[in-house]
């Protein structure tokens, strides 16, 4: 059974720079707890002697160091909520003091 507390959810929200209302905190604690409980079923399996897998592919996959075209700046900025399109820069709310 999951032991996720409201305190845990508050901390996660803080790391993600999210502000939650009391109702949301309640809701997400229940929902996230439910997900964890579901996933925790996997703990019932005996994995003694099984090598941990970080990835399903087990061979190197790489590419040569050859330049490929980048996106045009128009395309790159096309879906940006805010941008200085002439200067070719993305814009976000100011992030320091």
């Amino acid at each position: 059974m999951s032991t996720l507390t409201q305190q845990d959810v508050k901390r996660i929200a803080e790391l993600a720079r999210l502000e939650l209302t009391t109702d949301e905190l309640d809701l997400f604690t229940r929902q996230l707890g439910g997900i964890l409980t579901y996933v925790e079923q996997i703990n019932a399996l005996d994995t003694t002697g099984v090598v941990p897998t970080s990835h399903v592919l087990n061979r190197p996959v790489d590419r040569p160091d050859v330049p490929e075209p980048s996106l045009s700046r128009e395309d790159l900025l096309a879906n940006a909520p805010d941008a200085a399109r002439e200067a070719g820069l993305f814009k976000v709310p100011r992030v320091i003091g």
Binding site: D82, A84, L89, F90, K91, V92, P93, V95, I96
Partner: peptide, 8 residues
Amino acid sequence: SDRKTYLD
């Protein structure tokens, strides 16, 4: 700049 940060 008082309200926005630009990104490259």
